[in-house]
Amino acid sequence: MLDALDKKIICMMQDEFPLVENPYQEIADKIGISEDELLKRLTSYKETGKIRKMGAVLRHREVGYRSNALCLWIVPKERLEEIGSFMAKNPEISHCYDRVVVPDWQYNLYTMVHAHSREECKEIAARLAEKTGLTEYTMLFSVKEWKKTSMRYFHDEHK
């Protein structure tokens, strides 16, 4: 369970990470705890999976990945594990989720494909289709990014 200090730490860690020699000390000072306490708690979040990654996320357009498509697949239930694991191994895929099926929408496996161009996205999907033998899929290319922000956990409680 998360205590009040955990929530405060999680909230504050979502602010800009200081690019200085002692960034954790600077953050700890703002929270009002010692650097050691902050490092201890962050390490435990990482070990328990609350932090899934500590590092940087790049702006994909700026680093050359200009096209992205949400690629949706109809995967038979009995092949879900095998195909989900296969998709996850491909570096062009950043997200791979199984989602509920609703009457109007039969796709169950959702993969986010990133590439340098729309053509390359299509080639990647075609290759994945061939390798898996899946025939029913669709690609939803983004035409406009209306919003893209980072989530602010426990923001209301601490700001």
């Binding site: 998360l2 999680i10 860690m13 979502q14 990470f17 690019l19 962050l42 979040y45 990482k46 328990t48 999976g49 609350k50 932090i51 899934r52 990654k53 500590m54 590092g55 940087a56 996320v57 790049l58 702006r59 700026e62 680093v63 989720y97 989602r99 959702y110 980072s150 989530m151 956990y153 426990f154």
Partner: peptide, 23 residues
């Protein structure tokens, strides 16, 4: 400053923090 990095820091697992998500 030149926009290559979106964010540096921890990326939390929403489910592990008790949040519910949907697309």
């Amino acid at each position: 400053e030149n926009g290559y990095i979106r964010r540096i820091g921890p990326f939390f697992d929403s489910v592990a923090l008790g949040y519910t998500g949907t697309l």
